[in-house]
Amino acid sequence: MNIVVIGAGGDVGRSVADELARNGKHEVIRVGRTRGDHLVDITSDDSVSALFDQLGSVDAIVVAAGNVILAPVEKMTPADFLRGLQDKLLSQVRVALIGQHYLSDGGSITLTSGIAVDDPIAQGSHAAASNAGIEGFVQAAACDFRRGLRINAVSPTVLIESLNRFGPFFPGYEGVPAASVAMAYRRSIEGVHTGRVYRVGH
């Protein structure tokens, strides 16, 4: 398969790209904001469209990119919240809406949510809202796709590789290795499910 991994420079995306490229089974195209085989700004319609125009037809799209805002609600403004939604929720939806037209028949899209939607954390209101939006979009969009197209999401808990940055927000949580999370993306791409949320570590 010809698979596009957006966010391939991050902890999740890098592991996903490495797992999918193992043994040469798939051709993996690594895409990032600042480094990769191709560059893209997923907050921009034009940038996402230009990426897929360059790539042409693909068999699978993975989005492991987008940042949430971790901040107390009493310090968050509507503008802050909207900016975060643009980065995590709407950017992933944008890739799905544009990228669907470049998928070969039977192709798939896999988005990324996270544990905060099921297990809220302090300063995590934005993360919970963004992740809930992604999961709701996936479940509903799966009802509309034609040509055998599928869409799923992976919802990991905090990664072991990210504990140095995000561990203080997840006290008492046991991290999971990124390699284990990557297997859920493989399941989404190589399996038969659609409209599923694969939860890893929670």
Rank of each mutant, 00 (worst) to 15 (best):
A17I: 00
G10W: 14
G133C: 10
H202Y: 13
T43I: 02
P171M: 14
R199T: 12
N164L: 15
E161Y: 14
T157A: 08
R147H: 15
L163F: 03
A65W: 07
Q139P: 00
T157R: 13
S104V: 03
G106N: 06
I134G: 07
D37W: 01
S113A: 15
A71P: 02
I115Q: 09
I109V: 15
Y102G: 07
I109C: 03
G172R: 14
A179P: 04
I160R: 15
G106E: 04
A132D: 04
G167A: 08
V31A: 10
D37Q: 10
V58W: 07
A129M: 11
V12E: 08
V68H: 06
I160A: 11
P177Y: 08
G172S: 15
R33Y: 08
G10F: 12
D41I: 10
I29G: 01
V16S: 02
S180D: 15
L70N: 11
D18W: 02
M183T: 12
S130H: 05
V63D: 07
S15Y: 01
A184H: 06
L90E: 03
E161R: 12
F137E: 12
A116P: 01
I29T: 14
L111V: 07
R165L: 08
R35N: 05
T194F: 11
E74M: 11
R83A: 12
